[in-house]
């Protein structure tokens, strides 16, 4: 039997209002959130079977490429585990990822950065974690790019992640950064996270053991979702 999900640590997550990231100013709720223990509506969530996946869903080098081509850029493998706050693996989690190409350009009609489009790179993929919570995909390292916030703000190289655990309460979107990138610490979006220790949790480590010789570098990125109370003792109201 399991109980409510642990409350989110809102000092660890970025607050809603972060004026350094200008778009947040008009999109940040100003009223206090309504806090309540999770109910079955938040403690359940959709499940995605491995049958939704195609063979190239986790291969961004080839999943959009035409005529046997491949995406241009530094080849990397990104792998890791999805765990919960109790350090237990989250099996069957759907992990979706998207990113700019090696030049820092997204394939999107609203994208206006002058870096070239790669005709063989779509920029999206997905995977489902195995029994140990593991996922992996292959891609090219995304480029940094400028964006309109300050006159000369740049996003560090990053990959966006969307994760479904076992409960809607665990729903999370975040971004992965790359070890050693000095631009991480200059980015207004990264700086929405107040605690440097929290930022470091989003920096994937270069893992020389998992690199593929003469082929790809490897980065390890673990993701932690909210944990759930064990119901050791529970007060039950009369009649329940």
């Amino acid at each position: 039997m399991s109980g409510a999900y642990f409350q989110r640590d809102r000092d660890w997550h970025p607050p809603a209002l972060t004026p350094g990231y200008k778009t947040s100013v008009l999109r940040a709720p100003r009223q206090a959130l309504l806090s309540m223990p999770t109910t079955p509506s938040e403690e359940t969530g959709p499940v995605f079977g491995h049958d939704v996946l195609g063979p190239l869903d986790n291969d961004l080098i080839r999943n959009f490429a035409k005529d046997g081509g491949e995406a241009i850029g530094q080849r990397i493998v990104v792998y890791g585990r999805v765990l919960d706050e109790n350090a237990r693996p989250v099996a069957g989690a759907l992990v979706e990822f998207w990113q700019a190409n090696a030049g820092g350009r997204y394939r999107h009609k609203k994208e206006s950065y002058l870096a070239a489009i790669d005709p063989n790179f779509g920029g999206c993929g997905r995977a489902i974690t195995d029994a140990e919570g593991r996922y992996a995909f292959r891609t090219v390292k995304p480029g940094a790019y400028p964006w309109p916030n300050g006159v000369n703000d740049w996003r560090p190289a990053h990959i966006h992640f969307s994760v479904f655990g076992h409960a809607f309460a665990q729903r999370l979107i975040t971004q992965m950064y790359f070890e050693g990138d000095p631009m991480i610490w200059q980015c207004p979006i990264v700086k929405t996270i107040p605690d440097p220790a929290a930022i470091e949790r989003l920096v994937a480590a270069l893992d020389r053991h998992e690199t593929i010789p003469m082929d790809s570098l490897a980065y390890k990125f673990d993701i932690v979702l909210r944990g759930r109370r064990s119901t050791l003792f529970e007060n039950r109201m009369e009649g329940n």
Binding site: A87, H160, I173, T174, V190, R201, L225
Partner: peptide, 17 residues
């Protein structure tokens, strides 16, 4: 316990993913 991964904005191109 582990700490939950901190959130980051979905950004303008969330639909790509």
């Amino acid at each position: 316990y582990l700490k939950e991964s901190p959130s980051q904005t979905a950004g303008p191109y969330v639909h790509i993913g």
